[in-house]
Design a protein around this nucleic acid. Sequence first.
DNA 1: TTCGCTGCAAAAGTTTTGCATGCAG
DNA 2: CTGCATGCAAAACTTTTGCAGCGAA
Lengths: 134, 134
Amino acid sequence: MPVHHNTKQKALILEVLDKNRNHVTAEDVITLLHSCGEKVGRATVYRYLRELEEAGRVRKYTLGEKNTAYYQYMGEEDGCHGHYHLMCDVCGKLEHLDRTVAESFAKSARESYGFIIDCSKTVFYGKCKDCAEN
Amino acid sequence: MPVHHNTKQKALILEVLDKNRNHVTAEDVITLLHSCGEKVGRATVYRYLRELEEAGRVRKYTLGEKNTAYYQYMGEEDGCHGHYHLMCDVCGKLEHLDRTVAESFAKSARESYGFIIDCSKTVFYGKCKDCAEN
DNA sequence: TTCGCTGCAAAAGTTTTGCATGCAG
DNA sequence: CTGCATGCAAAACTTTTGCAGCGAA
């Protein structure tokens, strides 16, 4: 386990992620910080985003035909407490699906395949209600 | 509507996609062709994969933490012989879960949240049977 | 013969890494 | 003080594009 220093840069990055809960790219983070007069190195942003993703605090994914990665802050709650994530790959909105709804499915997967689903890491992709109606 | 010339290169690429229906990267296609003694230019592979994707004959997505795109041949009829992915985050093995097993779950999500799950993009993370036993 | 297609190489775009310096603990 | 974190630039990768020449229709 790495030692986590509390640095100004990490706090700034987290603040940007918290204020932009829908899909931001690494370059977005850099640009947003730069426009606030705060300069954080490109490598630091990429390194911290990766660290956050590996810790399960941020979700990394792609949208549309772009080859760039989008990042979404999942909040402090470690995720394994009661819900699956539903991510709209049109608008990037994240919804929560109560675990009880998915319980039977997880059970089927376990019984059929012996696969134990980790709900803190699983994200369902698709279209949210609003985007499906358009 | 572009004119589609029937070239040897396109036939070779399609053949590779057909024989490897799951998770092939562009580089995989190039390497596989090269190992068969067939050389097809990198640009041609990328161009044709993109064309196929735009035509709906191939699905493009990302898996795991990789930054590379995976391509999946959907066959001539875009049937719903889709499947969910079960990715073991211990050994990295990828398993397939038939869509029918997950159908009731997808239905619940749709009825409760109006969310339409795209099975081609959803990956369940967790432990596969082998890793769960250790 | 005519264009579209191919292949090479270069460019473009995104992410990672090496290394010297800075700063939190 | 110690050593992890940062920042810069370069490297590493993946994908796209320009252009000359080839080849399918």
